[in-house]
C-alpha cells in the first residue's frame, strides 16, 4: 500500500518535469505571461483607469473584483461551515482536559497584551486603508485585526474575548462585510453600469469616474476586512474549544 502510493506521486512528478522543459525562460520579460496585453494593460493603465498606485490592489479589488468578492465569500463560508460542523456536536459536558490550567491569567502577559492590542488594531487599520499605495489591503488588515482578538483570547481566555467580540457578532460582521462588498457592486449596477462597475458611483458622489473607482475600492476593502476579522476570530474560537466555546486553550 505504501509503495502503491508512490506511483501516482511519481507519475505526477514526471509529468510536471516533462512540461517544465517547454516553459519560457525564467524571469524573461518576453515570456507570454509577462508580455501579454492583459499584464501590460495592468501595468500601463492602472493609473489612468483607477488612479491607484498599487497595481495589485487595483487588480484585486477592481479589475478582478468579482474574484475577490467570491474570495471573501469563501472566507465567510469557512466560518459558517466550521460553525455548522462544530455547533451542538458531541459531548455537551464540560470535560476538563489534562493540559487545561485553571490558573489566573498571568499578570505580565495580560498587561503586555493590554498595551499591544491597540497598537495592533491601529496597525490593522493602517494596513487596510493604505492598501492603495503600499502592500496591504483588506485581507491583511482583517487578519491583523482578527489576530488582536485572538491575542486577547490567548492571554486571558476565550470567555473574556467573547465578551468583547460575541460569537453572534462574528456572523453578523462577516455577513455585513459581504453585504458591503456586493452592495457596492449592486449600487453601481443600479446606477447604470455592470455589476461592480464602481465608476458609475461618480453619478452620486462628487468625484471623477476614476476617483470613484479609487474610493469604492476602499469601501470594498473595508468589507473584506470586516469579514476576515470576524471569521478569523470565529475560526479560532470554534477550533480552540471544539465548538463548545468554553474557556478555550
Amino acid at each position: 500500500m505504501k509503495l502503491l502510493s508512490y506511483i501516482p506521486v511519481l507519475v505526477v512528478g514526471v509529468l510536471l518535469l516533462y512540461a517544465a522543459k517547454d516553459f519560457p525562460e525564467w524571469g524573461s520579460p518576453d515570456a507570454p505571461a509577462s508580455k501579454s496585453p492583459v499584464s501590460s494593460h495592468f501595468i500601463a493603465n492602472t493609473g489612468v483607469d483607477t488612479e491607484v498606485p498599487n497595481m495589485v490592489t487595483a487588480v484585486l479589488a477592481d479589475y478582478r473584483g468579482f474574484d475577490t468578492m467570491f474570495e471573501t465569500v469563501v472566507v465567510f463560508i469557512a466560518g459558517m461551515a466550521v460553525l455548522a460542523i462544530l455547533k451542538n456536536s458531541g459531548r455537551k459536558k464540560l470535560v476538563k482536559r489534562e493540559f487545561e490550567v485553571d490558573a489566573e491569567p498571568d499578570l505580565i502577559v495580560t498587561n503586555t497584551v493590554r498595551l499591544l492590542v491597540p497598537v495592533i488594531q491601529i496597525f490593522a487599520f493602517y494596513v487596510l486603508a493604505h492598501g492603495h499605495v503600499s502592500p496591504g489591503g483588506g485581507f491583511q488588515g482583517g487578519v491583523l485585526m482578527g489576530a488582536s482578538f485572538i491575542l486577547v483570547a490567548l492571554s486571558w481566555d476565550l470567555e473574556t474575548a467573547l465578551i468583547r467580540f460575541p460569537l453572534n457578532w462574528t456572523t453578523i460582521l462577516g455577513g455585513l462585510g459581504i453585504f458591503l462588498y456586493a452592495g457596492i457592486g449592486l449600487l453601481s449596477m443600479f446606477l447604470g453600469g455592470e455589476f461592480l462597475d464602481y465608476s458609475e458611483l461618480a453619478n452620486i458622489f462628487p468625484v471623477s469616474r476614476e476617483m470613484a473607482r479609487y474610493h469604492a475600492m476602499l469601501g470594498v476593502e473595508i468589507g473584506v476586512g470586516l469579514t476576515v476579522t470576524a471569521i478569523m476570530f470565529s475560526l479560532y474560537a470554534n477550533l480552540s474549544t471544539e465548538g463548545r466555546l468554553q474557556r478555550g486553550l
Binding site: E71, V74, V75, V82, L235, G243
Partner: peptide
C-alpha cells in the same frame, strides 16, 4: 506582473478557508 500575485492572494485565502474547515472536521 501583478496578476499572479493577485491570483495567489486568492489561492492563499482559499487554502486557509479549506484548512480551517478541515481542522473543524
Amino acid at each position: 506582473n501583478p496578476l499572479p500575485h493577485v491570483l495567489m492572494l486568492t489561492a492563499i485565502v482559499v487554502g486557509v478557508a479549506t484548512l480551517g474547515l478541515a481542522l473543524a472536521l
